[in-house]
Design a protein around this nucleic acid. Sequence first.
DNA 1: CATTCATTCAACAAAATTATTGAATGAAAG
DNA 2: CTTTCATTCAATAATTTTGTTGAATGAATG
Lengths: 224, 224
Amino acid sequence: MNSREFKTKLYEELSRVTKALSNPHRLEILDLLAQSPFPVAYIAEQIHLPVANTSQHLQVLKTSGLVRTERKGKYMYYGLAGEHVFDTWITLRKLGFSLNGEINTLLEDYREKRSKLNTINREELLIKLDRQEIYLIDVRPEEEYRKGHIDQAISFPQRELKDHLDKLPKEREIVAYCRGPLCLMADEAVALLNERGYSAVRLNDGFADWIANDMPVNQPEITN
Amino acid sequence: MNSREFKTKLYEELSRVTKALSNPHRLEILDLLAQSPFPVAYIAEQIHLPVANTSQHLQVLKTSGLVRTERKGKYMYYGLAGEHVFDTWITLRKLGFSLNGEINTLLEDYREKRSKLNTINREELLIKLDRQEIYLIDVRPEEEYRKGHIDQAISFPQRELKDHLDKLPKEREIVAYCRGPLCLMADEAVALLNERGYSAVRLNDGFADWIANDMPVNQPEITN
DNA sequence: CATTCATTCAACAAAATTATTGAATGAAAG
DNA sequence: CTTTCATTCAATAATTTTGTTGAATGAATG
């Protein structure tokens, strides 16, 4: 093998990973798996894709080494292959934000229309939690809450939130969080709450970033 | 725009960057541009691709925001759009190495056949340079040497090295470096030198990593 | 102001990726 | 041991990406 053949092969091998990252559905899957491992059917539902198609995308990710599988009962759980995959995803997300002004515009426009953009960051949240100044709600699907959540958070899945408004305090500020900065469930929740006379803000990133920074979590139930 | 439409659009935008990174030739271009900006024809020659094709790849990179252009005289220089692009490239390269065992095997096999794998790292190099224990040669094409090189390095382009062996000392250890860990010019040079009775080793990474770590460089000539 | 030459464009062909459908597999549960 | 059901496979169609060729552009040079 001469030098040129070798280089061609080398960059081809390297591009196997970047090719796996080159599809929007697969990026959305990675963003979801940053929460925790999930079975195929759940992932398919979350990203609104047929199961067979989702399975194919998952296999692309698996072949490239980005995700790994584990069978639990009749379900096949897919999860990120390691912390370096999460870190790379964060790096790429940041790069995307900085290179593509469109993304920021999109997100801001969307959020501006719903809530008043009121956000709080991780440090502020921790302090206010400590002082019991706020009421913290986790608006992700309950499956995800059960696998782990921010310490002291109560589960109020966004989809059912409007049916449980009576359980929320009007006198205390409510902080809602979901998966990460690209996740919209917290925005929807905050918009609804403010409309109904509550005082609500969202955590500016989300659960994935929370655990990535070793903040206090609660994992009440190790699922099998 | 509803929530699903919005998410689809968001991940599509994000994938514009990852799509641009998904082609092996474009990765090789980025790796080259990590050295410094170059005109289209030079890039085409280095990656062994027709100029028109190279131009197309460069435009994909430019549209995604990863590289930017600057006209100098009759040449159009393409360069990385910023430090965050370089950092992301390094992150991806590392991820590729860790996920794809094939890559490490390839590199090691190739190197083992040529030299005896003798390498030196940046810190050792700096110390030995200071003590004048070594003779440091830059084996990249002279164009690249002229744009900047490791302080005290002498230019001995790998392609012409065999015609200038008489200018090298046999009594002192020679250290050769080129672009980065994926670049093979230093390996070829080291192999040749050891064959001819010199004592030579390579710097384990290369010039891109050297400047990324703020090590001492020499930029004798600002080209225009 | 005509010429040169690096680069880009445009059009088409070739190759790779993605989506869709329905059937196959294979572990768990009755 | 049969049934159930989550997942994967296989085949094909639709779409996108990549390569190739030759012509067009347009800035610099004489």
